[in-house]
């Protein structure tokens, strides 16, 4: 199956965007994001804390619908999914 990962803002600078991955059946959403993020240490650290859980401000969307990051470890991805990982920006 094919899943598209889209990073935004700072995450995009560190990890790129529109990354096509081919996960195995049963791959969990959190594991997929972590696997892709691991290619860049700073990118991983921007999204995940030392325990490997999503940082609390990270916004995760699956096919345009919000997914609570706390639940991403129990949701499996499906063929054609588009996953967006987004940090709110704060400056003004």
């Amino acid at each position: 199956m094919t899943v598209k990962l889209r990073f935004f803002a700072r995450f995009r600078e560190l990890l790129g965007t529109d990354i096509i991955v081919e996960p195995h059946d049963g791959t969990l959403l959190a594991a997929l994001v972590a696997e892709v993020a691991r290619k860049n240490t700073d990118g991983y650290a921007a999204i995940f804390d030392e325990q490997g859980t999503f940082r609390e401000f990270v916004i995760l969307m699956r096919n345009g619908k919000r997914v609570e990051t706390a639940e991403a470890g129990t949701i499996t991805v499906a063929d054609g999914d588009e996953i967006a990982v987004f940090p709110p920006v704060a400056g003004g």
Binding site: R10, I59, P88
Partner: peptide, 24 residues
């Protein structure tokens, strides 16, 4: 809100749209 070359915007209408804390 902005950072670097990135920015975001939305219009919140009370009672109709998500509020800022729904989104962030």
């Amino acid at each position: 809100a902005i950072r670097g070359f990135y920015g975001q915007a939305t219009t919140i209408i009370p009672g109709k749209t998500p509020c800022l804390e729904c989104i962030f």
